Simulated scan of single mutants.
Amino acid sequence: MAWNEPGNNDKDPWKNKGGKNQGPPDLDDLLKDIGNKFGGIFGGNKSGGGSGKSFSSIGVMVVLVAAIIVYIFAGFYTIKEAEKGIVLRFGQYAGMVEPGLSWKWTFVDRIIPVDMQTTRALPSSGFMLTRDENVVRVEMEIQYRVVDARNYIFSVTNADESLSESLDSALRYVIGHAKMDDILTSGREAVRQSVWQELEEIIEPYNLGLIIVDVNFKDARPPEEVKDAFDDAIAAQEDEVRFLREAEAYARGIEPRARGRVKRLEQEALAYKSQVLLDAEGAVARFNKLLPEYQAAPEVTRQRMYLATMENIYRNTSKVMVDVDGGNNMMYLPLDKIMQQQSGGQRVIQSPTPTINQNSTSNNNSAPALSGRTDRFNSGRD
Rank of each mutant, 00 (worst) to 15 (best):
I34L: 08
Q237E: 15
P352H: 08
F73W: 00
A285T: 02
G126C: 00
Q22V: 12
E139I: 11
V70I: 08
L335G: 03
A269I: 12
D181M: 13
M331Q: 06
Q303G: 08
R120V: 09
F90N: 14
P205V: 05
I254F: 05
N359K: 11
V62T: 10
S371D: 07
E98Y: 03
E198G: 04
A82W: 08
F42C: 06
R242L: 09
A247N: 00
K273G: 13
Y93G: 09
H177S: 14
D148E: 11
S379E: 14
L101N: 06
R315A: 15
E5N: 02
L370H: 02
V320D: 05
E266W: 06
D219C: 01
K37T: 06
F73V: 09
T309F: 13
I58D: 15
G43W: 01
G39V: 00
L370C: 00
R192F: 03
L171S: 09
A229G: 05
Q197D: 08
W3K: 11
G91I: 09
K84M: 07
L167A: 08
A285K: 10
G100R: 04
D28F: 08
E311M: 09
V284P: 00
P25Y: 01
P25L: 04
E266M: 08
G52T: 05
A220D: 04
M305L: 15
F287R: 10
M180K: 01
I254Y: 12
Q143K: 10
D148Y: 06
N363H: 14
P24C: 03
R259T: 09
M180F: 00
E141L: 13
E299I: 06
V348P: 05
A297N: 15
I313D: 09
L184S: 04
R373K: 06
D33G: 10
L31N: 13
V191Q: 04
